[in-house]
Design a protein around this nucleic acid. Structure first.
Lengths: 128, 128
DNA sequence: ATTGACTTTTACGTAAACGTAAATTAAAAT
DNA sequence: ATTTTAATTTACGTTTACGTAAAAGTCAAT
């Protein structure tokens, strides 16, 4: 298993190193360190970063993303903990589903507006 | 046709009046005024506000939303303008489609993680 | 007519999510 | 060995999207 440096990840995702360090400040990602203190990122860290960026694109706050990440990498073994995690996950799943439906409606509207514009353009072309 | 006051809209959408005035500051919404200067919102204004809030839920910035709104209420008649508007709309439509696909993938992943957790819970229940 | 609820503008404050710069140290390249 | 490039921490700055408060005018109800 080999590692990524911070600038490699920054380049891959087209974000700044500051941004990556900021996510670490906020507890979202935890790279290991070399003896001299340099950060090294595993594939898993990379995957987490990808998750963070995806969450951001959907308008989730870093705090929300933080919670969702704990859902993913969490080793909760207790029954109570498991139930809590499942309940939280179900709620988030519901939110995601709602967003999808919402977005699909938006898509519909945009398509109808677009076809309206296209029609107008057709008419203009006709009278040229 | 009758009007809404700012606090009526604020209540309907569960946002502050400050927020609505801020959207106006940014040029996203333009209510008419009474002689004394009070803002009055039409149904159309209400629809625009709804659009803004939806855009926000999807993580669009007010600036992006502004652009998308001009797409909706815009009376562009020139051929060049129409073509530009259509091109912009198609691009946004593509973005929305990508987001939907992205979200559906996220949904899949969450579902699989959840079923994994549920399985674990089952096993725990079994050994009780 | 006056109280109370609502609205307006102006303006300063704030949290989130970084940007940017400085000083220092380490790694990579020549 | 020494330049160049990349990394680290610290810390102050900035933008977006509002919150909050003050001062003053207005509308609605009693």
């Amino acid at each position: 298993m080999n590692y990524y440096t911070i600038s490699q990840l920054a380049e891959q995702f087209d974000i700044s190193t500051r941004t990556i360090r900021y996510y670490e400040e906020r507890g979202l990602i935890s790279p290991i360190r070399t003896e001299s203190g340099q950060r090294l990122y595993t594939k898993k860290d990379r995957a987490v970063l990808k998750l963070i960026l995806r969450g951001k694109r959907f308008g989730f706050s870093l705090e929300e993303i933080h919670e969702m990440i704990s859902l993913f990498d969490n080793d909760r073994t207790g029954r109570k903990q498991l139930e809590k995690t499942i309940a939280y996950g179900e709620q988030k799943l519901k939110e995601v589903t709602e967003r999808i439906e919402d977005l699909m409606q938006l898509k519909q509207e945009m398509e109808s507006i677009l076809s309206d514009f296209r029609e107008r353009l057709q008419k203009l072309e006709g009278t040229k």
